[in-house]
Design a binder for these strands. Structure first.
Length: 435
RNA sequence: CGGGGCGUGGCGCAGCCUGGUAGCGCGCCUGUUUUGGGUACAGGAGGCCGCCGGUUCGAGUCCGGCCGCCCCGACCA
């Protein structure tokens, strides 16, 4: 992407409404613009990050055996009347009417709809278990949206739903999803801790929320440092192996981890290496049994021919919230520091002297080698402005091309996270960035 | 939903108390200058002063209503 002709409006000053780091930086780095309270438009660079997070979430869901579907944002009120949640949900649900005065709603979640889809087609225990997910925009009419995309009214969520014949099967599904989540967060470059949670309006008796550590988090959390040393990759735990899932589950549940309201000072005493800090909730999973299957008449024939209501669970990840949360976890005074796995571009090419034949040629060569997958700062700005914007936007690598180096066939390669700079050839720079 | 605050060029703000032809910094455009961490100078473009109504010879400024947005608290992916 050539910066000179891109909608990537960086801001020198912070807009007055932005209070927390991620919100300020998302506006300043030109990732999003607000269009109404709690509703944001995603600009090119922001969308690239969102898509990359989505891709990792999707890969891990697929690896866990979940099937991707896409359900609509607008739902019929009738479905929600069947579960009893149309009246129970309250003003957070955005309700609308079509031209025929039919009651519709903009979905805040999809338990009803997925249950309806399953009951239409799944008739036998032989078809279970199944896990379905989609990545779709949700709307919850929050009383007080804030913190930019971290607490927006419209947000992108990955929500998955599991259907099992019995509780034992549901527990396996639950553990699979938990492992998929830990892998997802690990790949995203953040330390997430699963913590026992209240089940809330979704109901059920087993629930965990996934909290990542960031100084500006909303709640105080406590956990055992042992979590930090666990490698969740497939080499360590096969998601299809029940013994592995068991071993994984034991680790997740025996190490101490609790949010403020569930903190146990006595148990905390015995934790050898303590970690505490502020946390942001980026995911939440629930096992809620037959609550929806029974209410909505989802049943399959069991081995003995008697129909049984499947045991269900639901599993959410706040995809758009993660963009903000990742910035909260990875930034400094100068701007964002993207983890390699989600950066909008792996590198930004800084042409310090646009118009200088050697600089232009070297930059064009570099840009071509990236095949478009790099940001090329070809603006006629001064060097200082480009450095400042590059740090602000936070691409993992900065390839600096100036008249001095260009004449000698050298570029300067800077690693955003460490500030480390080396002078090297174009080939070496490419090799390092491609890592 | 309770409490507080703010709406003035793209961004950050002043002007309002005490009514009289809308201003500053940044950004943007043109030229000169500068050239490895937001250069300097000159010229220029850009504003329904959130909206509606009232008071007045005259309203950004005073009064009333409405709308939008932000912050603190209780609640949530």
């Amino acid at each position: 992407m050539r910066l000179s002709h891109s909608l990537l409006p960086t801001l020198k000053e912070t807009p007055a409404e932005a209070q927390i780091a991620s919100h300020r930086l998302m506006l300043r780095a030109g990732l999003v613009r607000q269009t109404a309270a709690g509703i944001y438009a995603w600009l090119p660079a922001g969308l690239r990050v969102l898509r990359r997070i989505e891709a990792i979430v999707r890969e891990e869901q697929d690896a866990a055996g979940a099937q991707e579907v896409l359900m609509p944002t607008i739902q019929s009120a009738d479905l929600w009347r069947q579960s009893g949640r149309y009246d129970a949900y309250g003003p957070e649900m955005l309700r609308l009417k079509d031209r025929h005065e039919r009651d519709l709603l903009y979905g805040p979640t999809n338990e009803e709809m997925i249950t309806d889809l399953m009951r239409q087609s799944v008739k036998s225990y032989r078809e279970l278990p199944q896990i379905l997910y989609h990545i779709q925009w949700k709307f919850r009419d929050e009383v007080r949206p804030r913190f930019g995309v971290m607490r927006g009214r419209e947000f992108l969520m990955k929500d998955a739903y599991s259907f099992d014949l019995d509780r034992a099967g549901a527990v396996v599904s639950y553990r699979k999803m938990m492992l998929a989540y830990m892998r997802t967060f690990q790949r995203l470059g953040v330390q997430a801790i699963p913590m026992v949670a209240d089940t809330g309006p979704i109901g059920g008796d087993l629930s965990h929320e996934f909290i990542i550590l960031a100084p500006t988090g909303e709640s105080q959390v406590y956990y055992d440092a042992a979590f930090e040393t666990i490698d969740y990759s497939s080499d360590n735990f096969s998601i299809m192996s029940e013994p592995d899932l068991e071993r994984f589950w034991t680790q997740m549940t025996t190490h101490y981890a609790a949010t403020d309201d569930k903190h146990d000072a006595e148990a905390w005493q015995h934790v050898a290496e303590k970690r505490e800090g502020r946390g942001i909730e980026v995911g939440h999973i629930f096992y809620f049994g037959t609550k929806y299957s029974k209410a909505m008449g989802l049943a399959v024939a069991g081995r003995d021919g008697v129909s049984v209501a499947p045991e269900m669970g639901s599993y959410g990840v706040g995809v758009s919230r993660l963009v903000g949360a990742l910035i909260e976890a990875h930034h400094d005074e100068a701007g964002i520091i993207w983890p390699d796995s989600v950066a909008p571009f792996p590198a930004v090419i800084l042409n310090l002297k646009v118009g200088d034949a050697a600089c232009d040629a070297m930059c064009e060569d570099l840009y071509a080698r990236f095949n478009g997958d790099a940001l090329y700062d070809d603006r006629g700005e001064r060097a200082g402005a480009k450095f400042a914007d590059a740090d602000l936007m936070g691409h993992p690598w900065q390839i600096v091309v100036g008249p001095r180096g260009a004449a000698a066939g050298k570029v300067e390669l800077k690693r955003r996270a460490t500030g480390e700079k080396v002078e090297c050839s174009v080939d070496d720079a490419m090799a390092k960035v491609r890592g």
